[in-house]
Computed example of a mutant assay.
Amino acid sequence: MRVETLSVYTGELPYNGPAYSFAGGRSYTEFTSTVVVLTTDTGLEGYGEVCPCGPSYMPAFAGGLPSCLEALAPTVIGEDPRHTTRLMRKMDQALNGQAVAKAAIDLACWDLLGKSSGLPVYTLLGGLLNVSMPLHRIVSLAEPAEMRASFRDFRERGFHSFQIKLGHDIEADRDLVHALMDLRESGEIWVGDVNGAWRRDEAVRFSRSAEGLDLYLEQPCASYEECLSVRGHARHPMKLDESLTSVSDVQRALRDDAMDAMSLKVSKFGGLTHSRVIRDLCVASGIPMTIEDAWGSGIATAAYAHLAASTPPACLLNTTDLHNYNTVQLARGAPEVANGRMTLSERPGLGVEPDFSHLRRDALYS
């Protein structure tokens, strides 16, 4: 099997609420998703999708992905896409960094590996360990009354894990969490996600003022070093996200005992090839994970869902149904969601097909 062409498509994903808001004044109503299609000499096609959560969230933005994919295309054309580690090494040699662009290609390669072997990707990642997976819901930063309404709506739909966006000043965030805590029910998972907005002293002050409230504190400060310092003084378990961007970053965090949990966003680490290594490192160390991505539609959701489905249940904190955060679907066959849980089909590969009626082709390389 050889890759004959690489096509790049883009599509818009309008958010299904008034605005997706989080710390630092960042707010978005629409995201641009990039879909890669690899066509092979056997007639099989593989699909990958990545969608940065706006230009100010991570070191990648949708407008820059076409240029990165143009640089990467020659390393893929003519190669056997089933050799995922070999192809990742070739992409790393061709382009420094730019993990999100590489992830779009890597996911399409895994889709082809599954299709060519007749197996779902979760089988190739270790086997099906979760027939269904618990989902969390993001409670976007807003006024307390609006956030309380979101909690009630999500719980009625079967969700029991919540990621609460924080990022006001410390006193306002403290008051917000205290005001919401009476809604908490036994067995639920609550995460206060700051997206790196606080200084170290602010994070420690918040944690001490909220002592006794059962929640994870996620990425309170921007840098790894700041979060590590806070972990030594905080009163809550620490979950890391944005400050981890590579396998070596995760190894360092495990060595430093810097976290109690992590958010594993597949595209941030370059796709499934590196993410499965990180997943296995965390499993071996007893670190639970939220396995997800920054944003996306059905293809991106399916990709991380296959990784989550093949993760030991004790180390899967939860995952999310990002495709349902949008008013438009860019793919058919996305994982099914019911009662706060998500299930995958048994179709080979990622099990999804792009809906080209919502996509525009930007480039074709052969």
Results as ranks from 00 to 15, higher is better:
Pro144Val: 00
Gly48Gln: 03
Pro59Lys: 12
Arg347Met: 10
Leu119Ser: 14
Ser117Pro: 06
Trp190Thr: 11
Met147Ile: 11
Leu44Phe: 15
Gly127Thr: 00
Lys115Cys: 04
Gly298Arg: 03
His83Ala: 15
Ala314His: 13
His274Arg: 13
Ser263Ala: 15
Asp111Gly: 06
Ala60Glu: 07
Glu292Asp: 12
Ser246Ile: 09
Asp201Tyr: 08
Ala303Asn: 04
Tyr15Lys: 04
Phe61Tyr: 04
Asn96Leu: 08
Ile138Gln: 12
Ala303Tyr: 01
Ser116His: 03
Pro55Ile: 01
Leu364Tyr: 04
Met91Ile: 13
His306Cys: 06
Arg199Asp: 07
Asp41Gly: 03
Val131Glu: 12
Ser7His: 08
Ser186Trp: 13
Glu30Val: 09
Ala234Phe: 02
Cys53Asp: 14
Leu264Pro: 04
Pro220Phe: 15
Gly126His: 00
Tyr216Asn: 01
Pro348Tyr: 12
Ala261Cys: 08
Met147Pro: 06
Val277Asn: 05
Glu188Asn: 08
Ile189Glu: 09
Ala197Glu: 14
Leu350Tyr: 03
Asp153Gln: 10
Leu364Arg: 09
Asp193Met: 01
Ala294Lys: 04
Leu344Pro: 11
Leu217Arg: 01
Arg157Glu: 11
Pro354Trp: 00
Tyr122Thr: 05
Ser33Ile: 04
Asp355Val: 05
Pro312Asp: 01
Ser56Thr: 15
Thr311Leu: 01
Leu228Ser: 06
Phe162Cys: 11
Ser150Pro: 03
Thr34Trp: 08
Val139Glu: 07
Ser263Gly: 15
Leu244Tyr: 00
Ser243Glu: 03
Tyr122Gly: 12
Asp201Val: 11
Pro81Cys: 01
Ile278Asp: 04
Val50Cys: 06
Leu213Pro: 01
Gly212Phe: 03
Arg276Val: 15
Gln329Thr: 12
Ile105Arg: 08
Asn326Met: 11
Pro134His: 05
Lys165Ala: 10
Met58Cys: 09
Thr123His: 13
Asp169Lys: 08
Pro52Asp: 07
Met133Gln: 09
Glu45Leu: 10
Ser267Gly: 02
Ala104Cys: 03
Gly97Gln: 12
Arg2His: 13
Asp321Thr: 07
Ala99Gly: 06
Phe159Cys: 14
Ile164His: 01
Ser248Val: 14
Ile287Gln: 08
Glu12Asn: 12
Leu112Phe: 02
Thr123Gln: 11
His358Trp: 09
Pro66Val: 13
His306Gly: 04
Gly25Val: 10
Arg205Gly: 11
Arg174Lys: 15
Ser366Asp: 14
Thr39Glu: 12
Asp355Ala: 05
Asp201Gly: 07
Gly48Glu: 05
Pro237His: 02
Asp111Leu: 12
Arg148Ala: 15
Arg89Pro: 00
Thr290Ile: 13
Leu176Thr: 13
Val100Ala: 06
Trp110Val: 11
Glu45Tyr: 06
Ala222Gln: 09
Val76Phe: 04
Ile105His: 09
